[in-house]
Design a protein around this nucleic acid. Structure first.
Length: 292
DNA sequence: GTCCAGGTGGTCA
DNA sequence: TGACCACATGGA
């Protein structure tokens, strides 16, 4: 039995922040599948949450060591090593034009999720809506993942590994509601199967990683940056979507955020906090244009 | 019925 | 490069 506290987090805001589609809200808490384990997270204070392991643990013998390992996996997922309050403070001070965005954003952590799951997730996300993305991903788990040990049968599944994903046909993906992205997913998975060093992409520089990701079908610049961020923990990225495009114009007078501008934003303006600033900028525009 | 969804691929200049 | 348009679907 593992129970631990995650500080500086607002679960509702994190759930709604467009980075995670696997959490299942139930009875005022969230059920969170991470690899082959299931956790239950509940907000117990305005900025802290209690996380409990609900799936099967280990044999008693190595339970002590096992629990430490599980705990570190959980901390990794929630990115607890970073001091988010300090980061939000710093960004607010450095970029006062984003004050409202920072205010809203406090409590959101940028999760470190499985890279392959993020790759599939963000291909699906293009020009799509959240509820359908969630539905498609849930069906992928149910049909091609494995039941998480120690949970009620048929309730929670792992995200399939690459080999399992390679068994999903274009037609399957269509049945899961992937729409016109179905062939992209199928083709990309096939290509990944043939890339020998795919499992060490986390050793690549961010530029090189994004280049590799961009070669895959269904992955353009925005999606590549999202995968690099949420799947590989890179913060020297800046996903530019329709909202961020509007925000860049509104707050910085940038009309056409081409590659050159993107490099400037990451390397000179927002630097190592680019990813978090992007998230904040999204909320800045949302709160700013509310009711327009 | 119409419009939109935190874009991308294909085509053409 | 950059500008266009088509693209499956579920939900509002």
């Amino acid at each position: 039995m593992l129970e631990t506290i995650i500080e500086d987090i607002n679960l509702d805001k994190t759930y709604d922040s467009g980075q995670v589609f696997s959490w299942v809200p139930k009875n005022g808490a969230y059920f969170i599948p991470i690899k082959n384990r299931l956790y239950r997270a509940e907000q117990i204070e305005p900025s802290s949450a209690k996380c409990t392991l609900v799936s099967k643990t280990f044999s008693k013998k190595d339970e002590k060591e096992g629990l430490d390992k599980i705990k570190s996996e959980l901390f990794f997922y929630f990115d607890v090593q970073k001091n988010y309050p300090n980061l939000y403070d710093y960004i607010e001070k450095k970029h006062p034009e984003l004050k409202n965005g920072v205010e809203y954003g406090r409590g959101i952590r940028l999760l470190r999720q499985d890279s392959l799951e993020m790759l599939i997730t963000f291909i699906l996300s293009a020009n799509n809506n959240i509820s359908r993305i969630r539905g498609s991903l849930a069906k992928i788990r149910q049909n091609f993942g494995t039941s998480i040990p120690g949970t009620e049968k048929g309730s929670f599944y792992t995200f399939p590994d690459l080999k399992a994903l390679s068994n999903i046909s274009v037609e399957d993906f269509q049945n899961f509601g992937a729409g016109y992205r179905a062939p992209y997913l199928n083709e990309t998975i096939g290509v990944l199967m043939g890339i020998k060093d795919y499992n060490v992409w986390d050793l690549l520089s961010t530029d090189e990683l994004i280049k590799q990701l961009s070669n895959l079908k269904g992955i353009g610049p925005k999606v590549a940056h999202c995968i690099a961020l949420f799947g590989y923990g890179r913060w020297d990225v800046f996903p530019i979507d329709t909202w961020i495009k509007k925000a860049l114009f509104k707050y910085y007078g940038i009309e056409k955020p081409n590659k050159k501008v993107l490099d400037y934003l990451i390397n000179e303006k927002f630097k190592e906090n680019s990813a978090l600033v992007q998230q904040i900028m999204f909320y800045q525009l949302k709160t700013d244009t509310k009711g327009e």
